[in-house]
Computed example of a mutant assay.
Amino acid sequence: MSNIIFISKSIFDWDYYSDGGKVLSSDAWTRSYKIWEHSKTLIDKAITEFELADGIANLKRALNHRLKLIESYYNFRNMDASWKNKGYLEILESFELVRPYLMKNLLSIRNDIEHNDAKPPGKERCNEFIDIVWYFLKSTDPIVQILKYSNAHTLYDEDGYETQYGFSYRVDFSDLSSINFTGWFYNEIISNEPREGLLTIEFSDIHNKKKWKENNFHNDKLESDKWIHGEIVDLDIQTKKMIVSKVLSAI
């Protein structure tokens, strides 16, 4: 195809920040905290093992509510075919959003209570789980309070000064088959031939600074620099995960 060009994946090592998002309903993300508060009250006032068991059950409810909310916004299970039956905490771990071990202990204890009539742990251990779930909710608040979908990257030189090169992109979590993409790049990282370590760009527009010869804003561009607008296509799963991780971690 004549409208295909290739760019080094190293551009994703450039400094980045969040460039767009949607504020989400507070009613949705605060629900987990309301369930958590109910659980805390149950455990604080518990006298019997049955009351402690109810507290643990509601901690699991708070955790599950947040997990389902995250999936409803980001559709992570659809990203990788191998994730269809994978534990959701492990999926979040792959994006460095959580460390799942302690939460998995909570789920194991709750399941043992529910299915095997096991006794709940003591009150001190239950209070530890209260804190663990609270920290989980806090750590995932940024991605359920704002739906992140756009980043901007800028290249800085060895002295820490901003260069004329940078790009932005926007992801659609319902369809990651391609990613909208626009930016300025130096010629050495662009290729007309595919190679390992290169992104495939299906461009709708490509030109140099001559297009903006009346615009002083682009005087810093070299004649060989390229402005490219198009779609990143043919994304392998590891590249998708890398890009999504940067979108989720951007501030």
Rank of each mutant, 00 (worst) to 15 (best):
S2E: 15
S2T: 11
I5Q: 01
F6M: 06
I7Q: 07
S8H: 07
S8V: 06
I11K: 12
D15H: 14
D15Y: 10
Y16N: 12
Y17H: 15
G20R: 07
V23R: 06
V23S: 08
L24Q: 12
S26K: 09
D27F: 12
S32A: 15
Y33S: 05
K34R: 12
H38N: 10
K40W: 01
L42T: 00
K45A: 05
T48F: 03
L52F: 00
D54N: 12
I56D: 02
N58L: 03
R61E: 10
A62D: 00
H65S: 10
K68D: 12
L69H: 03
E71Q: 14
E71T: 12
N85I: 07
N85F: 09
K86N: 02
Y88E: 04
L89R: 00
E90H: 11
S94W: 05
E96T: 14
E96I: 11
R99Q: 14
P100K: 00
N105R: 03
L106N: 00
L106E: 01
L106V: 02
I109F: 00
I109A: 01
I109R: 01
N111H: 02
I113F: 02
I113L: 02
H115S: 04
D117W: 03
A118D: 09
P120L: 04
G122T: 07
C126I: 01
E128W: 01
I132C: 06
V133T: 07
V133I: 13
V133L: 06
Y135H: 11
S139Y: 01
T140D: 08
D141Y: 01
V144K: 00
Q145S: 14
Q145G: 06
L147E: 14
L147N: 07
K148H: 11
K148S: 08
N151G: 04
A152N: 14
A152M: 14
H153W: 08
T154W: 06
Y156M: 12
Y156I: 09
Y156G: 05
D159L: 10
G160C: 04
G160A: 06
E162W: 00
Q164N: 12
Q164Y: 04
Y165K: 03
G166N: 07
S168I: 05
S168L: 08
R170S: 15
V171W: 03
F173A: 09
S174V: 09
D175Q: 06
D175V: 09
S177D: 14
N180S: 15
F181I: 05
T182K: 14
T182G: 13
G183P: 06
Y186N: 15
E188M: 13
I189Q: 03
I190W: 05
S191N: 10
E193P: 00
L199K: 07
E202T: 07
F203K: 11
F203L: 11
D205Q: 14
K209L: 12
E214T: 13
N216K: 11
D220N: 13
L222M: 11
L222Q: 12
E223M: 11
E223H: 02
K226W: 05
H229M: 15
V233W: 03
V233Q: 03
D234Q: 14
L235Y: 09
D236C: 11
I237N: 15
Q238L: 15
T239Y: 04
V244R: 04
V244A: 13
S245H: 09
S245L: 05
K246G: 04
L248K: 05
L248I: 08
L248Q: 08
S249I: 08
A250K: 08
A250V: 09
I251L: 13
